[in-house]
């Protein structure tokens, strides 16, 4: 059996030069956008957790709400669950379908935002590199899982399945697929059942580890300390937690 090589990725953002100033232009831009553009605007929020709140999950929804003031359409776009869409094309179709509900309302369809508030289409370029961690067995796998950077979790659970994996695999994500190949179907299924699109990749790590450790108390303590770290008074606790995790 092949060892598991933990990879990670870094995103570089490119500008396409295309912009939209109305629902019509957003619709056309979305329809004609490359996959890397669709991916960027619907996934960049998951790569790095923002302290500003868990609700901003799509640039398309954000811009439609903030600049076009079409809150209902924005809410529907923002509430599309990425887990329901194994491919970007499927997600694109649903986003277009939400926008199409306003197509007949010509005034709203072509109403423009003030100059300077247009939507700018970008695209992602991913640089994929090894973390230096490899696992030949479950023990090594769990050990590495607790140490790799959060971008590595994002890569194996979200990015790689979207970009590279064919439909013939038993599991969508890389971790479950490898565990299944190791003869660990229960753990594979437990990992596959975890929602990777949660707001905090560190919390996702704890959920993954709890599958193997069954040590939910420890995970809860860590999560509480993480939350402390989000307010300035908790920075010291967060630093302590970081050192503890790194085994210092």
């Amino acid at each position: 059996m092949e060892p598991f090589t933990f990879m990670t990725s870094v995103e570089s953002v490119q500008l396409t030069g295309r912009k939209a100033g109305s629902l019509l232009e957003l619709y056309l831009g979305l329809k004609e956008a490359e996959g890397s553009t669709l991916y960027h605007h619907t996934h960049r929020f998951y790569r790095s957790y923002s302290f500003l709140g868990p609700w901003d999950r799509s640039d398309f929804a954000l811009w439609t709400a903030q600049n076009l003031k079409e809150e209902a359409v924005a809410e529907r776009m923002g509430s599309l669950d990425p887990r329901d869409y194994p491919t970007l094309e499927a997600l694109r179709r649903s986003l277009l379908a939400v926008l199409e509900t306003l197509m007949e309302d010509k005034d709203r369809w072509v109403r423009r935002v003030p100059p300077g508030l247009e939507f700018h289409f970008c695209r992602s370029v991913s640089l994929v590199l090894p973390t230096g961690h490899r696992a030949h067995n479950l023990e090594e796998f769990v050990h590495a899982l607790g140490r790799v950077d959060t971008a590595c979790l994002y890569y194996h659970l979200i990015e790689a399945p979207l970009h590279f994996r064919g439909p013939d695999r038993e599991f969508h994500d890389d971790f479950s697929q490898w565990l299944s190949g190791q003869g660990l179907p229960a753990q594979a299924k437990a990992v596959a059942d975890i929602d990777p699109y949660r707001s905090d990749l560190e919390a996702l790590r704890e959920d993954l580890l709890s599958v193997f450790h069954k040590n939910r108390l420890k995970a809860a303590v860590r999560r509480a300390a993480e939350r402390l770290g989000r307010v300035p008074e908790g920075e010291a606790a967060a630093r302590w937690l970081q050192r503890w995790r790194e085994g210092e």
Binding site: M7, V10, S12, V125, L129, P130
Partner: peptide, 22 residues
Amino acid sequence: IRDYLALFLCVLNPGQAVVKLA
């Protein structure tokens, strides 16, 4: 710095949506 490093690697590997450094 991370963004510049990524940019340089993209420029050295032009035209790819995914640059594999492995």
